[in-house]
Structure formats: C-alpha cells, structure tokens
C-alpha cells in the first residue's frame, strides 16, 4: 500500500517532479508511463527510499517513508533500471548473496524464485554477465523477491528485452499481483500499458492523468483515421497542411491523422482530390494507448503554453 501526496522533487532549478498524487493498493499493478526524462527514475528513487530530499508526504504500508526508512526498506523489493547485480557471480551465488544479506535462509531456490526460478534453474551456475537481457531481468526480479517484500518497484524491467521475455516477465508480475503484492512498474512500451490495472501518465515531471488503461482509451475524444492509396510521402505532404489536422505521421505505407472528434472524415476525400492524389482509402481506426498518450502530451503542452 503506497500513498503519495504532493510529491515534488527539484534538482537546482530543474523541477523533476511536480505535485504527484497517487495511491497504489495491495494486489494492484500501477503502471508509470512516460517519455525519457519524464521523471520516472526520480520517482522510483524516492519510492525506494534512496532519496529523501523530496517535498510532500509519502507513506508506505502505513508508515511515513521519511521517518521509518529502515523499516520500510524491509518490505520493498526494488529492480533498478540498470542491471545491478554481480556480473561475475553465478545466478545461484547472486541469489544466495542477497538472501543472506537479508538474513533469509535460501535452502530452496524454487521457494524464493517461484515460477521465475524454473526459467533460471538450468543456468544456475552461469555467470550473470553471460545471460541475455531477459534472463538478467528475471534474475534481478528474483533477487528483489528473496526477502518476500510486500511492495515491488520495477524501473523499466522490460526495456531492451525481446518480446517473448517481456511477456514472461509480465506473467510473473500478474501472478505476484494475485499473491497480494503492491506493484509499481514503469515502462515506455505502449503495448504493455494495458497489462497494468491503472496507469499514471508522467510528462516532464507532471502527472497528466491516472486511470485504468481501458477507460483512458475510451475517453479518447479525437478522431483517428488511416489514409492509403498513394505513396506515403506524398500523402504526408498533402495532409499535413490540412487545417484541421492536429497531427500527422507515417505508419508504414499509410498515413495516420489525428482530427477533432466531431470532424467529418468524408471531407478528406475532397481535400485529396483537390491535391491530385487520386482515389484514396480513408477509414477511421481504433486508438491505441500510444495515441492516447501522445494526445495527452499535446493537450498538456498547449495548455501550459497558454499559462
């Protein structure tokens, strides 16, 4: 259980986090979504009690994170963004080391690692630095679980990992969630966003919104269309000058356009013909998380430009 109230963090003049408010409950995955430099890692440093120079109030498991840092640390499992285990030790040695540091008895690796250990066991005597990115992350997660923490903090655990290992890691997170753990995980893979129960969108230290991914997509008010039928580059040149186009980008052989919600897409045909594109195939498409995210950022930038 985590409760953050008005969390802010500044580095000199730079406001890395501005007034964050969120809660995270037991048995829930809260996804932190944001671009590079949005403040995700800064937030994780604070949540991991490694940084106490923040403003606001943070309580974890009902304890004030500033006052009870040492007690809270016992119930936190932290997987940093950078691989932070001993590359020259084997999988087994890494696990044994961390469990003994936490004063846990690690007779049974399977007990510590659970389902994760099944994937790692065949390589138990391999040095960690020789593992693939996916295996490294599984090992990090395993090491973060040795002391059976109730809160799990994962800073971009799936970055740079192949798609299959990413899914496996998410499967593990889902089963940990069912075991009643509070899980905070940051990612910038949009396709992963829907695995989280709720999402916190972070942009340049600002909390854009916090909601379930499905309702975020449902609340997307813009109209998204795909245009094909002419060379993509030509489509781009033609439609990026359209007065109602909020955003235009190429998507393989097609052009995607963001238009106001009440826009009548039939008028696009006319725009195409006046620019001599020939017959076009224009159809609305379902927005995805990425579209929602880009839209929120755009709206935020517009509103902050006005103030």
């Amino acid at each position: 259980m985590i409760r953050a109230e008005n969390i802010s963090r500044s580095f000199g003049r730079l406001r890395a986090l501005n007034n964050l408010n969120f809660t995270s409950a037991r048995g829930e995955i809260l996804g932190i979504m944001g671009a590079n430099g949005a403040g995700k890692s800064t937030l994780f440093q604070i949540l991991a009690t490694l940084d106490s120079c923040y403003e606001g109030m943070l309580s974890m498991e009902g304890l004030d994170a500033r006052k009870h840092r040492l007690r809270i640390r016992r119930s936190i499992g932290y997987v940093p963004g950078q691989f932070s285990l001993y590359g020259d030790l084997t999988i087994r040695e890494n696990l044994l080391f961390f469990s003994s540091v936490y004063g846990c008895r690690a007779e049974n690796m399977a007990e510590i690692g659970g389902a994760l250990w099944e994937g790692l066991a065949p390589f138990a005597h391999r040095q960690a630095r020789h593992l693939s990115g996916g295996m490294k992350q599984k090992l990090s997660l395993c090491c973060a679980l040795v002391h059976n923490p109730s809160i799990l903090l994962l800073d971009e655990p799936t970055t740079g990992i192949d798609p299959r290992s990413r899914l496996e890691i998410w499967d593990v997170l889902k089963s940990l969630k069912q075991a009643g753990k509070t899980i905070l995980v940051s990612t910038h893979y949009m396709d992963e966003a829907c695995f989280a129960d709720r999402l916190l969108l972070l942009h340049r230290g600002e909390q854009l919104s916090t909601d379930a991914p499905q309702s975020m997509i449902a609340s997307y008010e813009k109209k998204l269309v795909s245009v094909t039928g002419a060379p993509a580059q030509q489509l781009y040149q033609v439609f990026s000058t359209h007065p109602d186009a909020e955003s235009c980008y190429l998507y393989g052989n097609s052009l995607h356009m963001v238009l106001p919600g009440d826009f009548d897409i039939r008028s696009l045909d006319v725009w195409g013909t006046t620019h001599h594109t020939g017959p076009l195939d224009i159809r609305p498409i379902r927005p995805e998380m990425e579209d929602v995210f880009m839209d929120r950022i755009r709206t935020h930038q517009q509103s902050s430009a006005w103030t």
Binding site: N36, T159, H188, M190, A232, Q233, Y249, L250, E290, I297
Partner: peptide, 24 residues
Amino acid sequence: DEPTSGLDSVSRRKLWNLIYTAAA
C-alpha cells in the same frame, strides 16, 4: 541496429519521421 531501444514513443516517432524522409 535497434535504433529505438530504450526510446519513448515521442522520440521514436521523431526518429521514424526522419527515417521516412530518408527513404523518400
């Protein structure tokens, strides 16, 4: 070679725009 590994979607779109320009 994995040019967008570790990039967020905003930066990725920026890069892909350039890639399309080059391809065009």
